[in-house]
Amino acid sequence: MSGPGKGPDEADEGQCDSGIESWRSLRSLPEPPLSPGPADAGPPRPSEQDGGERADSACGASWLGPGGPEARLGPLGPQQLEALTYISEDGDTLLHLAVIHEAPTVLLCCLALLPQEVLDIQNDLFQTALHLAVYLDQPHTVQALVQKGASRTLQDRHGDTALHLACQYQHLDCARYLLEATSDRGRNQHHHPELQLQNWQGLACLHLATLQRNRQLMELLLQNGVDIDIQEGTSGKTALHLAVETQDRALVHFLLRAGARVDARMHNGCTPLHLAAGRHLSDIAATLCQAGADSLLRNVEDETPQDLAEDPLTLLPFDDLKISGKPLLCTD
């Protein structure tokens, strides 16, 4: 999924799509031996849509039931077999391309005929078809892939699982389909290991949802058994620490009501109250104190929240929140 004209080591950091230049190759592939009805026709291809708008692929789970493609496909000929094993110069399989270009009939054929292992092939950016379906906000494609057994724990080049992407880009419906697949086995971290995985920045899904201030996503993760006090990997902050750093009092209150530990400690011993006091966020500090925060706990520098509140020069060392790599300066 690297951009045109770039070498293998020059992938644009902002790119999350691949195989766009492969559309001509995809269209030249032989048609699958299907006779789709109106429901299988799907939306127009990207090149045929007005104004470049993208429609949903509508590849729902109904494809996978009785009378689906398995019942209608005959033996594969050499051309069909070659088409199904196609791989682009970016490492995209036909399944990747079907998601990228929203070709539901091709996707249907792939899901019906390709073995389990093919669902989890990663392209040159370590993205699976499931990663792409989430990034492009195609919830029904996500549902179909998950029901066919696509892995939800594989990580892309940034360490993100499909659920990380759903939280980062706030694609709530995609997140629901990713998490509901094992709801019949119980909702806990044992059956949703992706809830515990950190990306290469040390962030778990709950941390991303918190930084986006998306309470619907946070509620969904909590309902499915995420540890509300899970620590991120760089400094040991919990979601409550991050909520304080976003200076969102309502979000802090939400996490406290949901059971967040008010005196959770970072690796340096700081509690959320330390952060609120260090940033002189009096309203948030009051909310934490009302929830029982201990104002006398000491961090590794032997400082209490009271010490930080009394010394305005302590503001800067705690001002470490960054967005897109740039520091976020706190203001009164």
Score class of each variant (00 low, 15 high):
32 P>K: 05
114 L>F: 11
269 G>F: 03
271 T>V: 14
271 T>S: 15
201 Q>L: 10
68 G>M: 06
145 L>I: 10
116 Q>V: 00
38 P>S: 10
224 N>V: 00
82 E>W: 14
306 Q>D: 01
19 G>Q: 05
144 A>V: 08
74 G>T: 13
189 Q>M: 08
261 R>E: 15
269 G>T: 04
55 A>K: 15
152 R>M: 05
118 V>R: 04
33 P>Y: 11
326 K>V: 14
5 G>D: 13
84 L>A: 13
248 D>Q: 06
186 G>T: 08
211 L>I: 07
10 E>V: 00
205 C>V: 15
95 L>K: 06
186 G>N: 09
99 V>T: 10
289 C>R: 07
113 L>T: 13
118 V>F: 10
253 H>L: 15
121 I>Y: 00
21 E>K: 03
201 Q>T: 15
291 A>Y: 12
94 L>E: 02
169 Y>D: 13
301 E>L: 08
266 M>H: 01
223 Q>H: 02
56 D>I: 06
217 L>Q: 08
157 R>T: 12
331 T>M: 06
162 A>T: 03
277 A>M: 11
284 I>P: 02
216 Q>P: 00
249 R>G: 01
240 L>V: 04
267 H>V: 09
254 F>D: 14
305 P>D: 04
10 E>M: 09
283 D>L: 11
64 L>M: 08
243 A>E: 15
113 L>Y: 09
133 A>M: 10
195 L>S: 08
94 L>T: 09
278 G>R: 04
330 C>V: 07
3 G>Y: 07
58 A>W: 10
254 F>Y: 14
4 P>S: 11
232 E>S: 01
220 L>N: 03
80 Q>D: 13
138 Q>M: 08
323 I>H: 12
111 L>E: 02
315 L>D: 04
273 L>G: 06
158 H>Y: 15
26 L>A: 06
190 H>Q: 15
127 Q>M: 13
146 V>Q: 04
181 A>T: 12
128 T>Y: 01
226 V>A: 11
192 H>G: 03
230 I>V: 13
243 A>M: 09
4 P>W: 14
319 D>M: 14
146 V>N: 07
67 G>K: 00
17 D>F: 10
228 I>C: 11
323 I>M: 07
30 P>E: 05
235 S>A: 06
138 Q>D: 01
